[in-house]
Design a protein around this nucleic acid. Structure first.
Lengths: 157, 157
DNA sequence: TCTAACATTGACGTTCACGTTAAAGTTGTG
DNA sequence: CACAACTTTAACGTGAACGTCAATGTTAGA
């Protein structure tokens, strides 16, 4: 019997820690099927492979997967939403890389502008959700307050 | 002397505004199919019907539907979750009705406490989501700020 | 009264987000 | 090297949440 829990990092090869799909599944609380599915749906880049075609995940992959999971579970995004979201993020990364190699100031500013556009899109999405949730929160708090008030009346009778 | 020509079935009943399923669909941005489906799934009570078996929705129905919609879209609840959620809420309504008929102050307070527990559960969920979103919002805003800073440096060169 | 534009209930179809199984290949441990 | 335990892709299956007919009945306005 193997021990999937046994994932102690090797201090000698700290930078080259790879995870099997099983280990990633355990760590992220997703299934192996789901991980392959996310790759198929282009939420994840094609994972690195071993000689025998086994997927090998890096720490970065793991983080991205956890990010995806939070987008899904916390924000309730569909995989389609997430793909768009991540693509915007990836494009922003491209822009950033180009930015570093650019010498023309006007070009650099244009790239910043483009990056800002992408960020703004994401921001709008996030803020819409926050507004809806805040409204809901207020309604719930109002009810609690009303009850507190009622309670004080009852206790003073 | 004014004589009402139409004999209202129940003179005690207030003059109510009714909506057709189409009107509800337009106002809630849901489809007619979805409205029938929600009724079938027992998220909505059986809607009132006209003589010809057409559904007639009340303002209360409309509010409940909008509530269901926000539970789905904002909190990402499944219809099954929502059914349970609403049942808990209906139970709370029962408690409230009992509350009004109750004379024992301790009992009344106990009922308020119970209602608060249910509200608190919902509130915690909502706040967790808000926190996750706020964190995300912060990251995005920070990036925008950083870009603004970079831009000012570029423009002063 | 006529009729266009609504509504009704089945019933089958579709999309999403995976689950499951099968047939095959790979890896690590004894 | 043997072999159990892993992995691969491909393909079909599934439940939720509707979409989309089709056949039929209802309503409101000219």
């Amino acid at each position: 019997m193997t021990h999937p829990e046994d994932i102690s990092p090797d201090p000698h090869k700290a930078e080259a820690t790879y995870y099997t799909i099983e280990q990633v599944a355990t760590r992220t609380q997703l299934t192996k099927r789901t991980l392959r599915y996310y790759e198929e749906m282009e939420l994840l880049p094609q994972a690195e492979r071993t000689e025998g075609n086994y997927r090998r995940y890096t720490e970065d992959d793991l983080q991205r997967i956890l990010y995806i999971k939070s987008l899904r579970e916390l924000l309730g995004f569909s995989l389609g939403d997430i793909r768009k979201f991540l693509q915007a993020e990836d494009e922003r990364e491209q822009v950033r890389t180009a930015f570093l190699q650019q010498t023309d100031v006007q070009q650099k500013i244009a790239q910043l502008d483009r990056a800002d556009e992408l960020i703004q899109e994401q921001l709008t999405l996030v803020e819409q959700k926050i507004n809806g949730l805040e409204q809901m929160r207020h309604q719930l708090l109002q009810r609690l307050e009303k009850h507190t008030h009622k309670r004080s009346i009852l206790q003073n009778s």
